[in-house]
């Protein structure tokens, strides 16, 4: 059974361990929680959400310039 999930940021995919929190996964990937919004199935979720096996979570970058 698959024990990982996928995070996608700017088209790049990251495999992360299921069962941990989003915050923990972001920290491991060195992505600042302040710089992204996490979206699962179209819904915004907070960083304390537990990651479920097989799911895909989109990270929307919030920094814009210009």
């Amino acid at each position: 059974m698959k024990s990982t999930a996928t995070l996608i940021l700017r088209g790049k995919k990251y495999d992360v361990k299921a069962g941990s929190t989003l915050l923990s996964a972001l920290n491991k990937l060195e992505i600042l929680p302040e710089s992204v919004i996490c979206v699962r199935n179209g819904d915004l979720i907070t960083e304390d959400t537990l990651i479920e096996a097989g799911e895909t979570i989109k990270l929307v970058s919030v920094i814009s310039g210009g």
Partner: peptide
């Protein structure tokens, strides 16, 4: 914060 504005736009 910029993050709040992104969340507002998405929501």
């Amino acid at each position: 914060y910029e993050r709040e504005m992104a969340a507002y736009a998405l929501l």
